[in-house]
């Protein structure tokens, strides 16, 4: 059923659910959630790499997971320079060619900075990263980022951690329609049904963190998201019935017209 794999750079993934690793109550809960989600791509904040205190380090336990590719992210960076430095360090430490570019100059609402993101993406593509930029749901910016060589675009569904779902639906539709690279909804998803909705819209994958990490049972919620993503993808591939305001009569009005 899943004929097409998710392609990012030279990498291919069966799973279209990407998991974020912040906000979990402890490392074991995080690892169980990752496992039950069946994800093959996990993102981790570089600022949470801690080589000096094992119990505080997210990288160590994640790096031991089999069948999972790690994608360091630059969260916490406030401008392009900080993000680029973080990315270089991340590659050095993790060996991963992926970088999830996150630049949010306002530490409170954490909205991505389109200008700094574009600048950092330009540099990181030249540095041969597989660049995955978190971005506002802006169809023009999406094309700009595609043009300079990003491997995907990651527009937000709504504010990070908000659980407001696909508030940017209309913009996401435009982004998906015109994009030649995978479109991955990142941020804002609250429930599996929203993840399914994103996939039905034609997103290539979704990234989920808060909705799994802050629930009472992250392991089960991760599994639920995985099923929803598969369901949404299958529905999209099967072809979803078109919406229509008018009922379609079983005896068409034009049946009197003869075939020519």
């Amino acid at each position: 059923m899943m004929k097409h794999k998710l392609k990012l750079g030279d990498y291919k993934f069966e799973s279209r659910l990407i998991i974020g690793t912040g906000k979990f109550s402890d490392v074991n809960t995080m690892l169980k959630a990752i496992q039950s989600s069946g994800t093959q791509l996990v993102t981790v904040a570089l600022r949470r790499f801690n080589r000096e205190r094992k119990s505080d380090d997210l990288y160590g336990p994640l790096s031991k997971l089999k069948h999972v590719t790690l994608m360091p992210n630059t969260s916490g960076a406030r401008n392009a320079k900080e993000a680029v430095r973080a990315a270089l360090l991340g590659r050095e430490l993790s060996g991963s060619p992926f970088i999830k570019l996150e630049i949010h100059p306002n530490p409170h609402h954490l909205m991505p900075d389109p200008i700094e993101t574009f600048e950092a993406a330009r540099i990181l593509v030249k540095e041969n990263f597989i660049v995955m930029p978190y971005m506002p749901a802006d169809p023009v910016l999406a094309k700009r980022l595609e043009d300079i060589g990003c491997a995907s675009v990651m527009p937000l569904g709504s504010a990070i951690g908000s659980g407001h779902g696909l508030r940017t639906h209309e913009m996401l539709t435009l982004i998906i329609r015109d994009s030649n690279i995978p479109v991955i909804v990142d941020a804002g998803l609250r429930s599996p049904s929203e993840a399914a909705a994103a996939m039905e819209m034609g997103c290539d994958a979704v990234l989920v963190n808060s909705a799994i990490a802050t629930t009472n049972n992250p392991e089960d919620m991760a599994a639920a998201f995985a099923m929803a993503v598969r369901a949404g993808r299958s529905a999209r591939m099967a072809g979803i019935m078109t919406e229509s305001d008018a009922a379609v009569p079983t005896s068409p009005l034009t049946s009197f017209l003869t075939k020519e």
């Binding site: 979990f24 109550s25 402890d26 490392v27 570089l46 600022r47 949470r48 790499f49 801690n50 000096e52 205190r53 505080d56 630059t74 916490g76 960076a77 320079k81 900080e82 993000a83 680029v84 430095r85 973080a86 270089l88 360090l89 540099i123 030249k126 540095e127």
Partner: peptide, 28 residues
């Protein structure tokens, strides 16, 4: 904290993000 289901975080920023001396990358 852990018994309450809270994860104590010691490092939540990396000073290397801020390092002043810049590499050539930024000139290109």
């Amino acid at each position: 904290l852990r018994n309450k289901g809270l994860d104590p975080v010691f490092k939540n920023w990396d000073s290397i993000f801020q390092r002043q001396e810049d590499t050539m990358i930024f000139e290109s």
